[in-house]
Nucleic acid binder design. Structure first.
Lengths: 351, 351
DNA sequence: CTGAAAGCGCTTACAG
DNA sequence: CTGAAAGCGCTTACAG
């Protein structure tokens, strides 16, 4: 395509001709560290080259560089869906950290469909990414095992699978925190909205919650669901039809929790009073809802940034060490309405 | 960086040697349309080349191609913030359409800070993007005017500025729809949470609302705010301190509206009953909130897709025609509680 | 300290 | 129908 009016970007050759040196000298001066530059040319030559580069507004052509070095400085990021704010925040963390390393990233939605995951990964690979951050791993690990077999450098984020390197938030612990909270409030009949059955996040959070209740001698019904409000709504309806009816529901993410609040309201009960509801992730909305939502805070931005750092160590051939970050329970009205004494005690104890 | 174990990708040369033809023939066969391929080689040669390409799992090296053709097939996308679901949905639309054209996109957050906008745009340009979709234009148009002066192919999305090509949703009309709705419900004392003063979205929506009320002989106070829940909360507090107190509030986006609902509750009033609240964008949450939110639906995904198509025409040097898509009012409980008759009438009339 | 050369993997006039 | 050549803008041994 013609770019009418756009002047051609400066090249090393143009600088070399202006400064009266060879293009290889220019490359060494402009590319390397100050020491390398000093080794490559005299002080005046270095100064002259730098001056010309600035004057001509030189920017290295990334395609030429990548072609020559077989590195793209490009990272591909796979997520279930970017319009899920949790993934968007994780991606922001990835993007921030990548920028610090001089890498560009590009994201792709897989909608959690295996065919899309593969297609998107192939696209990324055909773009010659140096590595992949995978945020949509399924717990069967089929797709990520393939990537590993092909020696593609990658890390998982948010969800873990197999024993591939990953940065996650400790969902099991988070689930236990919620169970602990519900038990302290005296709830004996509870339910879990467990999310998709292929996502380690939902599975871990559910397991932590269920295990803690089992320790207290209570069996907990768990129903799978989509991760969005509609999924939470539908799952909550099913839980609320049970006998005895649960007095508290743990949804493994905030959107499902919001759907659950809607379902509680729709069956004529008072959310937060008749039925306590807790979510997970502590998205920015949780605190601002008309009924503020109790939620387990997960460090989304940090998770993304740490995942990128982990990818660095994978790409450098170091032995990667997976990380599992700590969650934190944030108690709000959705589990406390009508129980002001409980509220006081809990906040004092730092929950 | 060494990629231990990763086999080198196939090249045109490898195919050429396997098939016993010149690399240029392979290029013509693999690149062009079927007709061009037919013109480039005999049927058997074409078949043989295709077979070898498949066998060797050939994927063109994008860096070599871009270096040679001076096109990157890369589109840069600038947004205020990707963790704003509205922008995330617009981006999904852009991404979808770009994929159909065989383009890759990468997004960057500017956080609506001019310095970041420039820095991110420079980054994109240094990556040699073929074009830019700008979702964070400020109404002063300073930054986008610069881009235009530099002949960078770009389009605006979501917000317009100057007379640069853009795809937006008709905010003025949307604001009028809400005003109409409030007037029908009998609200004489209303207020607007107007969003950031630099964003055409908030300005247009506010103007439409204010103008319609002015026609009815009512002056409407408008306060600027951040676009998030906290901003809406704070702005609503200011509106609620006025005398007479507004009985209805229009927030120019759903998150601000949710913040407003929280503020109404915090001053001891009943959201939706004592104070009606309407938002804008009809994000997926709106319908699932414990108090379902009246909101103006904007076609976010479509806006993104149309913006990408518009960018195509800009890049092809055609005269771009800006688009302004139609909004639609979706009435829910947040403006109807305690007014069931109004509800019936309004839904019958298709509002 | 500096240069000359080769080559990364493509595309595309030019020639036959 | 097919080939040979040039060149996109870099980097990096190799030489001096």
């Amino acid at each position: 395509m013609a770019r009418p009016g756009r002047t051609r970007p400066a090249t090393l050759r143009m600088i070399a001709e202006s400064a009266g040196v060879d293009v290889s000298t220019v490359s060494r001066v402009l590319n390397g560290s100050p020491e390398e530059a000093a080794r490559a040319a005299s002080r005046e030559t270095v100064a002259s080259i730098r001056a010309w580069a600035a004057r001509l507004d030189y920017r290295p052509n990334p395609h030429a560089k990548s072609l020559r070095t077989a590195r793209s400085n490009l990272i591909g990021v796979l997520v279930p869906r970017l319009s899920d704010i949790v993934l968007a925040m994780i991606y922001e963390g990835i993007e921030d950290a990548a920028a610090r390393h001089g890498w560009a990233t590009f994201v792709m939605n897989s909608y959690d469909r295996p065919a899309e995951q593969r297609a998107r990964a192939e696209l990324a690979l055909s773009r010659r990414v140096d590595g992949l951050v995978i945020g949509d791993a399924h717990s069967d690990a089929a797709f990520v095992d393939e990537m590993a077999a092909r020696k593609v450098p990658f890390v998982l984020v948010s969800r873990h699978a197999g024993d591939h390197p990953s940065v996650t938030c400790d969902g099991y612990k988070g689930g236990r925190l919620v169970a602990e909270h519900f038990l302290q409030l005296g709830h004996q009949h509870v339910g879990v909205i467990a999310g998709e059955s292929f996502a380690s996040t939902g599975l871990d959070r559910t397991a932590g919650f269920v295990d803690r209740y089992r320790q207290a001698g209570v069996d907990v019904p768990a129903v799978h669901s989509a991760f969005d409000t509609a999924g939470g709504h539908e799952a909550a309806e099913r839980l609320l039809r049970r006998h005895p009816r649960p007095t508290a529901i743990f949804a493994v993410n905030d959107f499902a929790a919001i759907g659950a609040l809607g379902a509680v309201r729709d069956v004529g009960l008072r959310p937060g009073e008749d039925v306590a509801v807790a979510g997970f992730n502590d998205t920015p909305l949780a605190s601002e809802l008309p009924l503020p939502l109790t939620s387990v805070r997960s460090p989304t931005h940090e998770m993304g940034a740490r995942a990128l750092e982990l990818l660095v160590s994978v790409m450098e051939g170091r032995k990667p060490v997976s990380e599992c970050l700590d969650p934190e329970l944030v108690v709000r009205a959705s589990t406390l309405l009508g129980r002001p004494r409980g509220y006081g005690r809990l906040t004092e104890r730092g929950l």
